[in-house]
């Protein structure tokens, strides 16, 4: 109790200093993978519903998927894959200490993410104008829940990457410290991963 260490006051500043940098990085990696595991099971409930109803109502799924715009879906897939690439390149850049390049790539990522949501918006309005809503039938319930939840994740990812971009501008990250960049990058790739399955399941399979 004598040598009260300064970094352990009740205030928030610098508390994480109780781990050495290497441990902190490993902990963060493990933490984000654990978080992604929870995300798998969050979407898992929807995937389970998808499988069950697909088996039960093949006809509804067949007719439903015809009403989706395959071309826009495919374009969006490519857009999201592109954003994954830019994030990966951004991380590669900061690993070499190139902050400017990181910011450029993050900016591109946000642009692509915005494009993705823009296209989603077009698709949704298109569906609504044809009277297709979440309560239309089981297929559209699934379509809107899956893409909606995924869209929310895209939005959350944009906020996260936006924050990283902002902090990078403040000179927070360097060759030796860039864990938050890596962590948010992993989250972003996961968002991409989910879409990689959603696209064929909803748009392509009849």
């Amino acid at each position: 109790m004598s040598g009260q260490s300064t970094h352990h006051g009740p205030g928030a500043a610098g508390h994480e200093a109780h781990m050495d940098p290497a441990t902190a990085r490993e902990a963060a990696t493990l933490g984000i993978w654990t978080f992604l595991a929870t995300e798998v099971l969050l979407f898992g409930g929807l995937f389970t519903s998808y499988i069950i109803y697909r088996i039960k109502y093949p006809q509804i799924f067949y007719e439903g998927h015809l009403k989706l715009d395959h071309v826009l879906g495919a374009i969006n897939t490519v857009v999201l894959i592109g954003s994954s690439l830019t994030v990966a390149l951004g991380i590669a850049a900061i690993r070499k200490g190139k902050v400017g390049l990181l910011r450029l790539y993050l900016f591109l990522t946000l642009l692509l993410a915005g494009t993705f949501l823009g296209i989603k918006y077009v698709e949704y309005t298109e569906k609504f104008s044809h009277g297709l809503y979440p309560d239309t039938d089981i297929f559209f319930s699934l379509y809107f829940m899956l893409t909606g939840l995924h869209g929310l994740h895209v939005l959350a990812g944009m906020v996260l990457l936006g924050a990283v971009l902002f902090l990078a501008g403040r000179g927070r990250y360097s060759e030796s410290y860039h864990t938050p960049v890596e962590i948010s990058g992993l989250y972003w790739h996961f968002v991409d991963l989910v879409w990689i399955y959603l696209f064929p399941l909803l748009y392509l399979l009849g």
């Binding site: 493990l30 654990t34 992604l36 595991a37 798998v40 499988i51 069950i52």
Partner: peptide
């Protein structure tokens, strides 16, 4: 940590089916 959730995903699907 990355693969464990997949197992449980299969579990919930198979159990429900």
């Amino acid at each position: 940590f990355a693969l464990a959730p997949l197992f449980f995903l299969v579990l919930i699907v198979v159990g429900t089916l």
